[in-house]
C-alpha cells in the first residue's frame, strides 16, 4: 500500500515530516521509559518481525494473495507505540537497504499506516472487546487497515490540488480523490478482511501465552 518517492509533493511530505518527527521522539521516549536499556535490542527484533509480517502473504479467494501490513497484529500484541516505531523503521529499512518505497514519502506512510493504523486498531479493540472479543479483533484490524488506506487515498488524491503548473496540469500524482479513494479502498477491503482473519488466529495464541502489550 505504501507510496514510492516522486508522487507526493513537498507541500504534503514536509508537513507530514513536521508531524511525524515529534511523534517518533515521543514514541521512543515512552518506550524507553517502559523498556529502559532493553529498548534497542527489542526494537531491532520487532523491526525485523514487522518486516516479516509486512511481507506475509494473505491468501485471498481464487488462489490469489496480497501482502499483510502487520501493524494491527503488532499494535494488539505489543501496543501502538512499538507498532508505530517498528513500522516506521521497517519503512526506513525498505527505503535505504532494499530501495523500495521512499524516503520523502516515509512520513506520510508511517503516519497513515503505522500511527493511525495502530491507534485505530487499539482504540476500537479497547472499545469493542466488552461486547465481543473475537468480533472486536476482526473489526478493529479491518477498520485499522481501511482507515490507513483511506488516509493514503486522500493524501494521494490531494496531490493534483496541492501542486499544479500554472496551466492546471498536475506536477505529482495526477488523480483526485474520486479515483484514489475507490482504487485503494476496494482492494483493501479484501486485504483487510484477510489480515483481520490472520491477526485473530495469531492473537488468540498470543493471548494464551500472555504476551499482550507486554513490551509496551
Amino acid at each position: 500500500m505504501h507510496i514510492p518517492d516522486g508522487l507526493i509533493a513537498p507541500q504534503a511530505y514536509l508537513p507530514a515530516a513536521a508531524l511525524a518527527v515529534p511523534l517518533w521522539v515521543l514514541a521512543a521516549r515512552r518506550l524507553r521509559a517502559v523498556l529502559g536499556d532493553e529498548l534497542l535490542p527489542r526494537l531491532a527484533v520487532f523491526t525485523a518481525l514487522a518486516f516479516l509480517l509486512s511481507a506475509l502473504m494473505l491468501p485471498l479467494p481464487g488462489g490469489t494473495s496480497g501482502h499483510a501490513i502487520g501493524v494491527g497484529l503488532l499494535a494488539l500484541v505489543f501496543g501502538p507505540w512499538i507498532a508505530f516505531l517498528s513500522y516506521t523503521l521497517v519503512l526506513l529499512l525498505q527505503a535505504v537497504v532494499v530501495g523500495a518505497g521512499g524516503i520523502t514519502s516515509l512520513p506520510v506512510n508511517a503516519l497513515a499506516m503505522g500511527f493511525v493504523g495502530a491507534w485505530v486498531t487499539v482504540g476500537l479493540f479497547a472499545g469493542l472487546r466488552r461486547v465481543h472479543e473475537t468480533a472486536a479483533v476482526l473489526v478493529a484490524v479491518w477498520l485499522g487497515v481501511m482507515v490507513s488506506a483511506l488516509l493514503l487515498a486522500l493524501v494521494l488524491g490531494a496531490q493534483p490540488w496541492l501542486a499544479q503548473a500554472p496551466d492546471g496540469t498536475p506536477r505529482f500524482f495526477p488523480f483526485g480523490p474520486a479515483v484514489t479513494v475507490p482504487a485503494l479502498l476496494v482492494p483493501h477491503a479484501f486485504i483487510a478482511a484477510g489480515e483481520a482473519a490472520l491477526t485473530l488466529l495469531v492473537w488468540r495464541h498470543a493471548r494464551k501465552r500472555r504476551w499482550l502489550a507486554e513490551a509496551g
Binding site: 535490542p41 527489542r42 527484533v45 497484529l73 482473519a197 495469531v202 501465552r209 504476551w211 513490551a215
Partner: peptide, 28 residues
C-alpha cells in the same frame, strides 16, 4: 493457507519474544 499463515505468524512472534530476550541478556 490461513492456518499456515497463522502458524508462521505465531512462530515469528514466538521467535521475536525469545530472540529479543536472548539478545538483551547477551548485550547486557
Amino acid at each position: 493457507r490461513y492456518r499456515a499463515g497463522a502458524t508462521l505468524g505465531l512462530a515469528a512472534l514466538d521467535k521475536a519474544m525469545y530472540n529479543s530476550e536472548a539478545l538483551t541478556q547477551g548485550m547486557r
